[in-house]
Design a protein around this nucleic acid. Structure first.
Lengths: 341, 341
DNA sequence: TTCTCTACTGTGAACGCTCACAGAAGCATG
DNA sequence: CATGCTTCTGTGAGCGTTCACAGTAGAGAA
């Protein structure tokens, strides 16, 4: 287990080879999958590795393979959002775990300012990571295109908007999720269904609104623009949105809110206005983040499968590093019924 | 600026040397500080670097120097706390910035579970980072000692508790900060001053309580254990603590809370109990985190200089990597008066 | 037998850099 | 003139690994 002496020079592949009575090449082959190695040699090498406490020197390996065996998790958002939004938490955790299975460490890079973005882009394009998991809801973010043009394997979380061509992404099926929620509200007999949207320069914002409109139209309910307020995913914008809706459409009997955090804001506005939930107004959220169960009443919401999103992001990225073409993955959402509807 | 061809083999130190008409050695010397290099050669090399777009290959460098030129930011807390506590935000940001000045990337490592801690410890001790910035409030965390014993340069945030010997740390002067706050409360004429402490297995928890007791004693006010409730820095524990205090000491006219997040909980309990702040009860927090100004009324609090804490952590760590002995740095706090007192 | 094919193994040559050393040039000192 | 010192420069070796290649042994086919 632990080394005997105090901080000696760590064992090299050479030491292992000598110990096992084989050549460097054979040890290397064992290390890299064990193809074309006899069971006898395999066994001897593994035993020698255990005895010497050998750990592969990643620098030497990277020098020759040209790969760094590490992956960057790049966030081109203001850092505040990273900490405010509970979704990043699960996403980061999921990616860390998925990469741990490949024994790949994750390099978290925060690039909230223009200056940091330049520095980080340079760092990445210099080949210091093999690929990038990019989280950036904003559209018009040039980083994605820069990295793609530099030939860096890249997977985005959420569908990129307004980007010329082929960039991999993994996203939940926003439109379908929105449809499920609004269908649910309509099935409860609600007819004056409002919506607080996400930012409309993001794919999530656009798609969820589209799903909302589709279902109402299908149900034969006329669209009423007074029932739509726009938000930015923050709790405060949820409060403001709900105030606007109550003012313009006091007869509203349900509201679909494009994020749980905003839905919290909606709940507190409704509470102040003396409306009961779900009695007077049914409220549906989106995300199934920790905010959904921290609210009172607990939110009916659309679960985004962040665990699967993160594992898919990792899978697609690793495939792309291995030479595969960019791919898009859309994952299904799920309606989670709780007390707010 | 940008490379001409499409993703050619990147230029090596050899290409730069040829371009500049000097030897590899001279280029290397320029890259590493430029000692023993003539101004002429210096200039030629720099021009060649610019022309070729050369970037040093860190793997090759690391292979020979044995250093990795990267630093780990290790958090051995449950990941939830990382996202809940706004202090981590500023700490991480500060460290990232301080390291950026040295052009050192920061490897964020989250090790919330026992299993992850093992994996990460192995990773670190294998020499993949040059040093570690460790954030872990819990005492009895074996990771710090393990890393120290393995000879890994290490700086902790906050004074380690119960650890045998020499580990570097940077901390705010908790006791002095607590003294300032309680002195402030007493100077307002308050005599029944309560406290909600932090976890008493952390240095911050212990020291702030000690400061509280010292000042009351100095002011000739008898200590009353009914006025002390213990918390765990979470908002919920602030609410519970305040309820306990109100029950045991209804005549309490001030309360010192060991974190702003807990103070938020205290405020909401006081509000529910119909006590006005600061009229009936003055409330003092600790941290000056974003929670302090997000409260209503805004919190009088003790500012922890997280910007300086982070830059000092980086400074001490880099010095230690350079061979210096472990060091302890205690930074002064500052009383910030707002509306809650 | 002889040839071919497969499974396995060892060896030298890289990868791109730093480091130690040798040596050159310039200048002052004995 | 030799000697020493300082400043600068080039060269070979080597860091620990992978990769391409050559080579061996054994099995099966001709």
């Amino acid at each position: 287990m632990s080394q005997s002496g105090g901080r000696r020079r760590p064992p090299t592949i050479h030491d292992v080879a000598r110990e096992a009575g084989v050549s460097r090449g054979t040890v290397s082959r064992v290390l890299n999958g064990g193809h074309y190695v006899s069971p006898t040699a395999q066994e001897a090498v593994n035993a020698a590795i255990r005895r010497t406490g050998y750990v592969v020197n990643r620098h030497a390996r990277s020098l020759i393979t040209g790969r760094s065996d590490s992956i960057g998790f790049l966030l081109t958002e203001p850092q505040e959002r990273f900490f405010e939004d509970p979704n990043f938490n699960v996403l980061l955790r999921g990616c860390t775990q998925a990469l741990a299975a490949h024994d790949i460490p994750l390099l978290l890079m925060l690039a909230g300012t223009e200056d940091e973005r330049r520095r980080i882009t340079r760092y990445i394009t210099a080949g210091h990571v093999d690929g990038v998991l990019l989280v950036s809801s904003h559209s018009g973010d040039p980083v994605a295109e820069q990295l793609r043009d530099a030939g860096v394997p890249l997977v985005m979380c959420g569908k990129p908007i307004g980007v010329g061509s082929k960039i991999s992404y993994v996203a939940a099926d926003d439109r379908d999720g929105a449809r499920d929620m609004v269908r649910h509200l309509v099935s409860l007999g609600r007819r004056r269904v409002g919506m607080v949207t996400g930012p409309l320069d993001t794919p999530g914002g656009v798609e969820r609104l589209a799903g909302y409109r589709e279902v109402l139209t299908e149900a034969g309910i006329d669209l009423d623009e007074r029932l739509v307020a726009s938000g930015d995913y923050s709790r405060a914008s949820g409060e403001a949105g709900a105030e606007l809706l109550l003012e313009r459409a006091p007869d509203m009997d349900a509201v679909f809110v494009a994020s749980d955090l905003m839905a919290q804001g909606v709940l507190s506005t409704l509470h102040r206005a003396g409306r009961s939930v779900p009695g007077d107004v049914a409220v549906g959220g989106f995300d199934d983040s920790s905010a959904a169960v921290a609210s009172s009443p607990e939110l009916t919401t659309i679960r985004q499968p962040y665990d699967r999103i993160s594992s898919e992001m990792v899978r697609v990225l690793i495939a792309q590093i291995g030479g595969d073409d960019p791919a898009a993955v859309i994952l299904p959402t799920e309606l989670v019924k709780r007390q707010s509807t």
